[in-house]
Every structure is written in C-alpha cells, then in structure tokens.
C-alpha cells in the first residue's frame, strides 16, 4: 500500500509539472473514439486475413506471369513441342522460386518475435499461411499441365510425374534450406536449387543417364513419393519447432 501511495503521489506531482505535450489529450481521445468502432464480427475471416498477411504484390505478379508464359510456350513454343518432358521439369520448379520469399516470411526471426505476441498462436498463423501459398502453387502448376496436355504425346501420368517430381523435391529442399538461410540468401539458395534441378533435367535427357521414358517411370514414381514424404517431414518439423517457440526451450535467435 505504501508503494502504491508513493507511486500515485509521484505521478500526481509529475502531472502538475505539465511535462506532457498539449496535444496528448486530443490524441488519446481520438484513439479512444476509434477503439469504440472496433468490430469483432467475423473471427474466421479475420484469422484468414491475418494468416495470409497480404502476400507480396510481386509474388502474385510473378505467379500470373509464370502461368501466362507457361501456357503460351506450352501451346505454341517449338521447344515445348519437341521436348515436353524437359519443358515441364524445368518450368514447374521455377514457380517455387518465385513464391519462396513469401512462403519463407516465417523465417524473418525478429518479426517472428513480434508475431508471437499477437492475438493468434504463431504456429497456426504460419502453418496456415504456408499451406495456402503452397496449395496455390500446386493449383497453378496443375492448371498449367492440364492446359498443355493436348499437345503432349504421352499420358497424363507421365506429364504429372515429370512436372511435379522436380517441383516437390525442390520445394522440400528449399524448406530444409530455410533453416539455414533467410531473406536474400534464401532467394539465392532457391535459385541455386532451381539451377541444379534444371541442369539435372537437361542432363537427364541428353546424357547417357536418360531419365525420361516409359521404362524409367517406376523411378520417377519413387522420386515423386520421396518428394512428398520429404516435404511432409519438413513441414511437420517446422510445426514442431514453432510449437516449442515461446515455451522456453529455445529463443527465436536459435534454430528457427
């Protein structure tokens, strides 16, 4: 009680010295008025909006551009007609590189600290955001593959395997790399992974390895499965790390 009284008296004394600016009351009143307008109408919509947190404008532009170029080249480009396997293997992982910056927002460490003190649990926010953005990537990729399907000699299964396998593997590799790099470094790592994927795709066609062809389909299926499993493992690991975040097992400047 003594401390409370002393504190209150001190505050009273300080107020009387008028050290605060003249506009402060006006400002505080304005904020209080605004507070009354605060609406809590749609918690689900609010959560979705918070999770997606305005995907970068450039991410959407790049996605749209990618889709347009993919469809255009896939239908009318001579390379896509002659080498459709390489075409899909090289172009689909590019989509991941364009969106990695937005997907990897979670790895801006000190912002994670801010995010974890807001209304929603950081693990729910981050996992939802990552799932939606990744899902959109695959919807675009599938739409692109369906669009160029009529010009492809093989069956749909082959087209899906040649396109999605490198994309899945690149994605899982990048999710892994997100543990070690962030920001611009991560972008560079993304391009490096993409470069390696593209080189492999081309080498698989023109070297003695011969990745493509009906006899190699079981290997492609295995690789595709490996990509899915690896991706799920990385995704779950991220969820685990985020759950532990804030419980004292680690600080944000450690592993995440």
């Amino acid at each position: 009680m003594g401390i409370e009284l002393e504190k209150a008296l001190y505050r009273y004394g300080r107020e009387s010295r008028k050290i605060v600016c003249e506009r402060r009351e006006e400002n505080v009143l304005k904020l209080m008025e605004l507070e009354q307008k605060r609406s809590l109408k749609n918690p689900l919509a609010d959560f979705v909006s918070a999770s997606l947190g305005m995907p970068g404008k450039y991410c959407v532009v790049w996605q749209a551009l990618w889709f347009a170029v993919f469809c255009l080249l896939g239908r009318s480009g001579s390379f896509a007609k002659e080498e459709p396997e390489i075409f899909v293997s090289v172009l689909l992982p590019l989509l991941i590189v364009f969106t990695i910056e937005d997907i990897s927002r979670i790895y801006h460490q000190s912002l994670l600290e801010l995010e974890s003190t807001t209304k929603y649990p950081v693990v729910r926010i981050v996992m939802f955001r990552m799932s939606v953005l990744t899902f959109l990537d695959y919807v675009l990729a599938l739409a692109g593959l369906l669009f160029i399907r009529p010009g492809f000699q093989g069956n749909m299964e082959e087209l899906l395997l040649y396109g999605l396998t490198p994309m899945l593997l690149s994605e899982a590799a990048l999710w892994r790399l997100m543990r070690y790099f962030k920001g611009e470094e991560l972008k560079a790592a993304g391009f490096a992974v993409y470069g390696m994927t593209a080189v492999l795709a081309v080498a698989g066609r023109y070297s003695s390895w011969q990745f493509y062809g009906a006899e190699r389909l079981p290997v492609w299926k295995l690789a595709c499965l490996a990509g899915v499993v690896w991706g799920i493992v990385e995704y779950c690991q991220l969820g685990k790390d985020l759950k532990r975040y804030g419980t004292g097992h680690r600080s944000c400047h450690e592993k995440i």
Partner: peptide, 16 residues
C-alpha cells in the same frame, strides 16, 4: 499486417 495479426481489420485498422 500487424493490425490483422492483432485481429483488427477493415476501415478500423486503416483509421487506427
């Protein structure tokens, strides 16, 4: 973005 994480949306978030 931070406003949306704090559950503030729409006109209110912009005004604030």
């Amino acid at each position: 973005y931070i406003a949306s994480l704090k559950g503030l949306t729409g006109v209110y978030a912009r005004q604030k």
